[in-house]
Simulated scan of single mutants.
Amino acid sequence: MSSHNLKAENGRPGMSAKRHGRNGSDLVVRVPPGTVVRELDAINGSNGFEGLLEMEMSDMKMEDHLSPRGILVCELNRNGQRAEVAQGGGGGRGNVAFKSSQNRSPTTADPGEQGQRRRLELELKTIADVGLVGLPNAGKSTFLRAVSSAKPKVASYPFTTLRPHIGVVNADGKLQDKRIFTVADIPGLIEGAHDNRGLGHEFLRHIERTAFLVYVLDVSGEEGSAIKAFNVLQNELEKHEPGLSQRSRCIVANKMDSGGAVVENLNDLLDELGCQIDIFPVSARFETGVEDVIRHISESLP
């Protein structure tokens, strides 16, 4: 985690003939949508929120304001959204404020006040409409390549993706649908991710804000492995955030071009889950079946 000291410009002193000093310019720090701001010093009891004059807060539960890392100050989720997190100091009074009938030429003046100092943590939670979740090597990156112009790394070893990738899906180009939505390739989860095993919370948090989940399951493994993978993913999401596993979702039964038990695994999924969740057989490698998934997502998003 990198650390930066940021300081706004100082104001200028007043001058003769009752001229005010110039105000210092605001320091504007540009951050991407999805940035969460927390105050770290608040852990030690020095929150100092009295200087927060204008701040747009997203809807959240009160308990969400508290974190082991500090107190939540604001979330910036939209382009153009602004929040004031530290207020500059007020200007002092010049000599003329101390002028009186007994003191016609005062030399007394008030200094300007110090601005606020804050220790803030900025955390980026990826915002995407759709989150791809799956065990390592399920084919999430390949699926993202198939539905968008994003080019995440694809390889045949676990944890190929070490940070989320976001692709833009233009349904108009595939389905004569005007909708455009974003898809995030969340790095592979493993059993125990909610306890921070593997890449753990580092990536589970990126799923929290997606409106739709796509479970990418590898159906090329041994019989029954796809259902087991789905149950593991559901369990990890639910333990990370209750209710997350029930968000709008579908299953991509990927690698249908492989041999082995693909037909058996697909049938197991349909028999076990077909009445609860939409399941789409797909070969992301050859881009077959992806249009049905895009259409379903486009129709399901709010």
Rank of each mutant, 00 (worst) to 15 (best):
V216Q: 00
F159E: 06
E202M: 08
S248A: 09
R12D: 14
T126I: 11
E291K: 04
L6K: 08
T126A: 06
G11I: 04
A253N: 07
I207W: 00
C250V: 02
A155F: 02
S16L: 13
V168D: 04
I43H: 02
L175C: 03
S141P: 10
R19L: 12
G134M: 07
G289H: 03
R117Y: 14
G221F: 06
M55L: 14
P242M: 07
L72W: 13
T210H: 04
E272Q: 14
F212K: 00
I71G: 08
M15A: 15
N254M: 07
D268P: 05
P158T: 07
D268N: 13
Q234C: 11
N265W: 03
F143Q: 02
L144D: 04
V130P: 02
A42C: 05
L66P: 01
G192C: 03
R12C: 10
G80R: 08
L132H: 04
V219Y: 01
P164H: 02
L66C: 04
G11L: 02
N44E: 11
S141N: 03
A17C: 10
A17S: 14
E287G: 09
T161K: 01
V96H: 12
M1K: 11
T161R: 01
R82C: 12
C250F: 00
M1P: 14
V28R: 09
N196F: 04
E56I: 09
I294P: 00
F181Q: 00
A253K: 05
D218E: 06
K61C: 11
V28W: 03
S100M: 03
S100G: 09
A86N: 04
I277E: 06
A146W: 07
L266P: 08
M15N: 13
S300N: 01
G112N: 05
H165V: 12
E54R: 11
R93L: 13
V214E: 00
E39H: 07
C74F: 01
V154M: 03
P158Q: 02
H20V: 14
V219M: 03
G94N: 09
